[in-house]
């Protein structure tokens, strides 16, 4: 079976001329279905850029990015957009819609699914909110939620869209160790039960043990220390 994500010789830089700054240098990486890969490294080493490239949010400059077997280098806007619907994105700044309640925010994720009735999508949203331990906060606006709660709503939103690949940027950053652990177990369960690929950027040493594979990154390169936990 082909890898869900396959990067080969990926390079990326920002700016131009003298200000040109190489952020990613010759990255090659694979994420298989059902696999949880953790990406660690000092801040500013290009982890987030890597996630946005895999998430089809950025145009690939050099090298090859295959997601679900599709080449993203040179892919059209429409093709990238279509791909994004299959990718769950958990963003650090969570970016919930301020005018929507927790439940409605999650339903914005569920609404991306075609052919489901309103009731089915709503039930799905509630289910995921329950899974992240927020069933008591369905009707609250982001304004009334704590940072950790917002983070969990954002995770529920990503999961409600039934992604085949999950990209998470510091998903446990604003969570206490217990909820952080719960969330990570949830993501791992998703990978194991539904064959979802998970690529997680994290600094959190408490959750490293869930990884099938740990990848270290430094100065835009994957360091030699990349190894499998097992």
């Amino acid at each position: 079976m082909a890898a869900m994500v396959r990067l080969e010789g990926l390079r990326h830089s920002f700016g131009s001329g003298v200000n040109r700054r190489q952020v990613l240098q010759d990255i090659s990486l694979c994420v298989d279905a059902g696999e949880v890969v953790l990406l660690t490294g000092p801040s500013g080493c290009g982890k987030t850029t890597l996630l946005t490239l895999i998430g089809a949010l950025r145009q690939v400059q050099e090298g090859s990015v295959h997601v679900f077997g599709e080449e993203l280098n040179g892919a059209s806007r429409a093709a990238r957009l279509k791909l994004r619907r299959r990718i769950g994105m958990i963003i650090q700044g969570h970016n919930l819609l301020r005018c929507l309640t927790a439940e409605q925010n999650v339903q914005m994720g569920a609404d991306l699914l075609q052919g489901l009735s309103y009731r089915a999508r709503r039930d799905r949203s509630r289910e995921w909110l329950r899974a992240v331990g927020l069933s008591d906060h369905l009707g609250k606006l982001p304004h009334d939620l704590s940072g950790g709660q917002k983070q969990r709503v954002s995770i529920a939103r990503a999961l409600a869209a039934r992604p085949q690949l999950l990209l998470a940027d510091e998903p446990t950053a604003s969570l206490d160790s217990r909820t952080g652990r719960e969330v990570v177990e949830l993501l791992k369960g998703l990978a194991k039960d539904q064959g979802c690929g998970v690529l997680m950027v994290t600094h959190d040493p408490r959750i490293l043990d869930v990884a099938d594979r740990l990848v270290q990154m430094e100065d835009g390169q994957l360091s030699k220390g990349a190894f499998a936990i097992e």
Partner: peptide, 8 residues
């Protein structure tokens, strides 16, 4: 932008 990232 978030909605667009989600695939809207």
């Amino acid at each position: 932008a978030t909605l667009m990232a989600m695939g809207y």
